[in-house]
């Protein structure tokens, strides 16, 4: 059940910020991570600058 919830959160992108924090802590410990809102804002801009949907 818990696994399914994790899958749903990951599928919807709900946990994107947590995964980003993990990544920053692991790979760039010297960098101050963006806050939740700034991260979301940047993500939305990035995601839509390419082909995301088909016919």
């Amino acid at each position: 059940m818990e696994k399914l919830w994790r899958l749903i959160r990951q599928l919807s992108g709900e946990d994107a910020y947590e995964r980003y924090l993990d990544h920053v802590r692991k790979c760039h410990p010297e960098m101050a991570p963006l806050d939740r809102k700034a991260f979301f804002v940047r993500e939305e801009e990035r995601k839509w600058n390419g082909i995301r949907r088909c016919c």
């Binding site: 899958l7 990951q10 599928l11 995964r19 980003y20 990544h23 990035r46």
Partner: peptide, 16 residues
């Protein structure tokens, strides 16, 4: 891997 567009992702999530 940059935690953004390049992210190793669970195969079911990628499938979705």
């Amino acid at each position: 891997d940059n935690g953004l567009d390049f992210t190793p992702t669970n195969k079911w999530v990628t499938f979705g």
